[in-house]
Amino acid sequence: MTDLLHVKVVKVGIADMNIIKPPHSIRTSGLGSCVGLVIYDEKKGIAGLAHVMLPDSSLAKSGQINVAKFADTAVKELVHLLVKEGARMPFLKAKLAGGAQMFQFASGGDLMRIGPRNVDAVKKELLDLRIQVVAEDVGGNSGRTIEFKLNDCLLNIRTVNKGTKSI
């Protein structure tokens, strides 16, 4: 029971993931082109967040990969972790934010337009796993800090110039 008295915010770094149970909340800071993906089972009270950096693990040029970094591997691994902790596959819902275009480049390769590609890749994986996206705040050109709380299942999104909102 003492756990309940220590409400903490679990922080997720770049190319990282973690899961929470009530009463804790989970946060990731400074999303630019990266996508912050929250998957949760409301009734079971469990949620996970991944800070995805790149769309596809085929971009990896070295043997050992960090699964949280790529959209395709991160979605699968996050779902796996949630199910292992008691979440039920058919009841999983997703919310996502990020995928912005922070810099405007006239030229530059595909990597400079990575934000929308990250969003598309995450959505494709979610669709394959039949997980419904119930809310999203993607694109634009603002950095975002997001925090998800299990009590109301709202994703709070903070930007520098456009204030805060909850989806």
């Binding site: 770049i14 800071s29 400074g30 999303l31 630019g32 082109s33 990266c34 950096m53 912005a100 922070m102 810099f103 603002s142 950095g143 975002r144 800090t145 520098v160 110039n161």
Partner: peptide, 8 residues
């Protein structure tokens, strides 16, 4: 904007 968003 946020440093993380830019540096990434």
């Amino acid at each position: 904007d946020m440093a993380g968003a830019a540096i990434s």
